[in-house]
Amino acid sequence: MRRVRTESSREIYRNAWMSLREDHITHPDGSPGLYAVVDKPACVCVIAVDGDSFHLIEQFRYPLGRRSWEFVQGTWPHEGPPGEELARAELAEETGLRADTLRHLGRISVAAGLTSQECDVFVAGGLTQGPHARESTEQEMQHAVFTRAELDKMLRDGVIADGITLAAYALYLLHTP
């Protein structure tokens, strides 16, 4: 089976969080093509669960120009380990919560037609509250707890529209009795 072949690749832009590259490719039928790809380190999404309640954060998402309710998410500003260490760090940073247990549910593609970034999804349990340590870009972040019924209503009503949160919740429902 013939595959897409990368003929050349050049970096267009880079900062501490991402890079943008342009790839000239050849399709399986021999026709040329062009892809722009945003490369970002793997991220984590943490579903913090306490009984029948879920911890969410709300923050301003600059590209959308609005605030967004989401599960805890984040990445390192460099290629670092995407797993449990990052999940614990992001949970504490954004909510102040510390988890006794973390269970890996799976890995999702963030936006496969745009970026190489993937996201490891974890469920955090045995939660204890401590101080948060938000970055300056997170200074207006809010942390709130919602029952499952409230979370489901927010999803149905479109209050929660974040793709990672939606995909992570689907994994949670598939892996939780």
Rank of each mutant, 00 (worst) to 15 (best):
W69I: 04
H175D: 14
S136I: 10
P131R: 14
Y13G: 00
R21I: 00
S109Q: 15
H143R: 12
E7S: 03
C45Q: 08
A144P: 06
Q129H: 12
G30T: 10
L155W: 07
G96P: 01
M18H: 03
E140N: 13
W17V: 00
G80K: 03
A144I: 05
L174V: 07
S53F: 04
Q117T: 07
R107N: 00
K153F: 02
A170K: 15
K40T: 04
E94R: 09
E140I: 01
Q73A: 09
S53C: 14
T147I: 06
Q59C: 07
E138C: 02
L173H: 11
D152T: 08
G51A: 04
Q73M: 07
E58L: 05
A167D: 14
R134E: 10
S109F: 12
T137H: 14
A48Q: 10
H104K: 13
G163H: 11
I12A: 02
G158Y: 05
D120Y: 02
C45E: 08
H78W: 07
D162S: 14
D23A: 02
A168N: 11
G80D: 09
C45R: 06
R103S: 03
M1V: 11
A133Q: 11
P131W: 11
E138I: 05
Y169L: 01
H132T: 12
R61F: 15
C43E: 10
H104L: 12
H27M: 08
G80Y: 05
H27R: 14
G51D: 12
Q59H: 14
E135N: 07
A170P: 04
R67E: 13
V4Q: 04
V38P: 00
L64A: 13
E84K: 10
E90Y: 12
A112W: 11
H55E: 12
H78E: 04
L64H: 12
H143S: 09
V38S: 02
F60N: 01
G51L: 00
V49D: 11
L64W: 12
R61C: 14
R10M: 00
G158W: 06
R3P: 03
A36E: 11
D23S: 03
A48V: 04
V159T: 15
V72H: 05
G30R: 00
L102P: 06
T75R: 11
T137M: 10
F60R: 10
P177F: 04
S53Q: 13
V44T: 13
M141G: 08
G113Q: 13
E135Y: 15
E11Y: 01
V46M: 09
A48I: 05
H55S: 12
E84C: 02
Q73C: 11
Y35K: 01
I47G: 01
Q129Y: 13
I57L: 07
T6F: 02
S109C: 05
A167M: 12
A112V: 08
K153G: 13
G80N: 06
A87S: 11
R21T: 00
T176M: 03
M154E: 05
R5C: 01
A144E: 13
R10A: 00
G96A: 10
W17Q: 01
S136R: 10
L173P: 04
F146K: 00
R3A: 03
